[in-house]
């Protein structure tokens, strides 16, 4: 049985695409056949983060419109077995995402894949609604600041009322929180919300805390999901989160400031 996961947030730029790429890669590394779909029609970022932008010929919208076969649009990752990307169109807009078309593509994919990961666009308009409509599980990507938390809360409400599971009275969409761009030092200075503050408002289980990290930008510049940067905090945090998603018991890391030696403190000051 395949499982449809949506990576969603309401607010833009919080790390959905970064997390989708990392998560899909992590699931594939654990041996699950995984596809990650870009629902951000018109912007197309996922293929860049996954480093396959030069191999895109056909896309999700072509498949929805019957202009290409699914097998023509799916891009197999060069690094990892079991990992596929379904890129989106840069020239069309979100109206191209018809409910029937999306449903048909998802049905076809679920015959082959263990996990289908949907990278949602920002907002609560058509693209975002389509990406969450068929979901079994939602990963709510949130930054530790008030407006992001508010938007995530809003999305949780949408999941509870306008997803397929809600409309058909099925078991509700399960939900987990991925708190990204967490900077423990800024949290300590009171400039960002604490993990507990966010959990108090959203009241859903915590999947992981991804620290703010230079490694993320570095990785996306070379088209590599940051989870493959095993030396980085962010990469390790994503690996932990994938483990927790699969049921492993892993303690949360990167939530309190690292103790710094004199040397790095001096470095910081001059930076």
């Amino acid at each position: 049985m395949s499982k449809i996961i949506v990576m969603t947030s309401g607010k833009g730029g919080v790390g959905k695409t970064t997390s989708s790429a990392a998560f899909a890669t992590g699931l594939a590394l654990r041996g699950f056949k995984t596809v990650v779909i870009d629902f951000d029609v018109g912007l197309r970022n996922l293929d860049l983060v996954m480093g396959c932008e030069r191999r895109v010929v056909f896309d999700f919208i072509n498949v929805i419109n019957g202009e290409a076969k699914l097998s023509q649009a799916l891009i197999k990752d060069k690094r990892i077995d079991n990992l596929y990307i379904l890129p989106t169109s840069q020239t069309r807009d979100k109206d191209a995402l018809t409910p029937a078309g999306v449903e048909r593509v998802l049905n076809d994919l679920s015959k082959e894949f263990d996990y289908i990961l949907c990278d949602s666009p920002a907002g609560i308009e058509r693209g975002a609604l389509m990406s969450l409509y068929f979901a079994d599980h939602a990963i709510i990507v949130t930054n530790p600041e008030v407006s992001s938390v508010r938007d995530s809360d809003r999305i949780l409400g949408v999941l509870a009322s306008r997803s397929r599971r809600a409309e058909q009275g099925l078991e509700p969409v399960t939900q987990q929180l991925l708190l990204t761009r967490y900077d423990p030092e800024r949290v300590e200075r009171g400039e960002m919300l604490k993990v507990d503050d966010v959990l108090e408002i959203l009241a859903i289980p915590l999947l992981g805390v991804i620290p703010e990290s230079q490694a993320v930008l570095r990785a996306s510049n070379v088209g590599m999901p940051v989870i493959l940067d095993e030396a980085s905090n962010a990469g390790q945090a994503y690996t932990d989160a994938v483990g927790r998603f699969l049921g492993d018991e892993i303690e949360h890391r990167f939530v309190s400031p690292q103790k710094k030696g004199l040397f790095s403190r001096l470095l910081r000051r001059s930076a």
Partner: peptide
């Protein structure tokens, strides 16, 4: 599917 209708309505 009613979610699609809702989308259309919200854009009206």
């Amino acid at each position: 599917m009613s979610s699609a209708n809702q989308v259309a309505e919200r854009d009206a």
